[in-house]
Design a protein around this nucleic acid. Sequence first.
DNA 1: CGCCGCCGTCGAACCGGTTCGAGCACCTTA
DNA 2: TAAGGTGCTCGAACCGGTTCGACGGCGGCG
Lengths: 337, 337
Amino acid sequence: MNIGEIARRAGVSRSTVSYALSGKRPVSDATRRKIQQVIDELGYRPNASARALANGRTSTIGLVFPPAGPHYTGMQLDFIGSVVEAAAAHDYDVLLSPSGVDSDRSFQRLLGERRVDGAILMEIRLQDDRVDHLAALDFPFVAIGRTARPEGGWWVGLDHTSLAAACVHHLADLGHRRVAFVNRPEQLLRCGYESARRGLDGFTKAAAERGLTVRTYCCGDDAASGQACVEQILHDDPATTALVTLNEAALGGLYRGLAQAGRHVPRDFSVTGVVAGRWAETVTPRLTAADVPAEEMGRRAVDLLVERLDHPEAPPRHHLLTPPISLRASTGPGPRN
Amino acid sequence: MNIGEIARRAGVSRSTVSYALSGKRPVSDATRRKIQQVIDELGYRPNASARALANGRTSTIGLVFPPAGPHYTGMQLDFIGSVVEAAAAHDYDVLLSPSGVDSDRSFQRLLGERRVDGAILMEIRLQDDRVDHLAALDFPFVAIGRTARPEGGWWVGLDHTSLAAACVHHLADLGHRRVAFVNRPEQLLRCGYESARRGLDGFTKAAAERGLTVRTYCCGDDAASGQACVEQILHDDPATTALVTLNEAALGGLYRGLAQAGRHVPRDFSVTGVVAGRWAETVTPRLTAADVPAEEMGRRAVDLLVERLDHPEAPPRHHLLTPPISLRASTGPGPRN
DNA sequence: CGCCGCCGTCGAACCGGTTCGAGCACCTTA
DNA sequence: TAAGGTGCTCGAACCGGTTCGACGGCGGCG
């Protein structure tokens, strides 16, 4: 059932059917109705590949996300979901691309073979060759996160620096003096992973400002690592009374480690950090945290990308978000002096 | 940079370039080398839309997943990740399709417009019109889950009935006599959602077999609902000493509710259920549960689909998985008589 | 009445690949 | 030396849409 078949049955030419569907040229009412009737009868829908070939647009955007394995966090799920929904609202499909081991190959597929009109990049690094590469090609993309030099780019980011700082100030205001920082895995930190780097910076600077005694740790993205990390923290400095974490997946393990060390949260020990809201709600006591607005970020990224696709010459835009700290139940006053 | 350009620069015809790339007809060594050299110079990659149009295959599979909102669970993330990876291994891309509010429209896009060669359906219902629809069209798909009449279909499923039963037997063996069942939200149960229905069946039958006193509950997919559900359970029958749950997202809330009611897990109260392993590890005490092998299921679904695509006449195949219960720390002996 | 302009429609070319049948050159064998 | 392969390459048609230029018929206006 192709457009020629429709044309034949409606007694018109293929081009007329095309114009009736696209509305790019006037078609008489009678003809349009006849065509529509045939289409409804046969349940015809134009072939996406043919259309893409003819007008050079696939109506698909690529979502480039990190390699699998134990590295998924709940946040990423929220991103994916909101991106797909927002894209659907703009009549775009979403093609998933793992930028895993063989990231070159995926990129070649997406860009070289023209499978997508544009892309959204997750898990940005401060020095990100994917970003440089796409920018050099002038390929339309939006980054979720910002590189070290975000000027002139299209991105949606979180102000990790000030978010981590806000956590420090919150703890300092409560009277905590010895605070630990639980980061993402060391491998991510080393390769310049944005949230890990900026979060660490913000934490360190704010702590210095407030004259706090701090230690910083990297921690695997799973509960067992979180538990081990707490043990290490309390071993290194038993007088520690609070921690700040970016590591959503380790959160449950951090709580377990504290419980097993006999530290009650929030009476003996305060915990806070930067975590997606729905995950902050699942632990007990509920985590006082800067809630990552993953849903909003995904939606905004799609909106920006669509704008960029519709207006290729539009000046770059971005959104830097700084969600407030949601006060829940995991922080309390620090030790008396 | 299309195939014609390559042909021109290599001094051969377009068809020769095509044959050199596909290997479907012999090409002399000299010619092949010359073509390859031009291709490498220009970084040419064949256009995916044109190729799809010509040979009728898009090399893309559709992953039809449930509507967003608060309905995502961690399990689904694991599915998505493993499907994408497995598909990449077979040289397929994955197109995400929300079968949300407007599920008809998504389906039309995927199938009617021929965007994908085949599909993987998540979140199956016992009576599933999507499955019926695709089967009637003879469209290649694999279901993650099984309908009420799985015969003759392609699917990868979990034996929810016996999994829930195994949880009951585990608790009964420990001496528990009054047990609650915490299901997915009522809306999902009512619309025939497979895991909710079969899980409930398995639980009910096994409990009857063992002569247990039971109550069953539906519970929203979030921590607050889980907490409220536990309150309801203990209000309805304060003598309840254990619960079985399918509701991953409510798990944190269930634990919180028990803690606030002063019930210590596992001393005073046992908790078990069917949950993805990595989430069972995040709660304290770690959940004794039948671990959902999401990664394996995603991979197997892709393998089945690829087999079906490669051999259109192959007889239907399926995998029914019954992972064992992993003994962790959330269940203990029931009350003394 | 004749000319002009507009509306609606058509045919052909094109997007960038794949594939089929044909043909040429060269080598083998009778 | 002629006949018959064989190995490689080419041109043309095709996949299913979109789009451009052209054209026929009709109404309005001078």
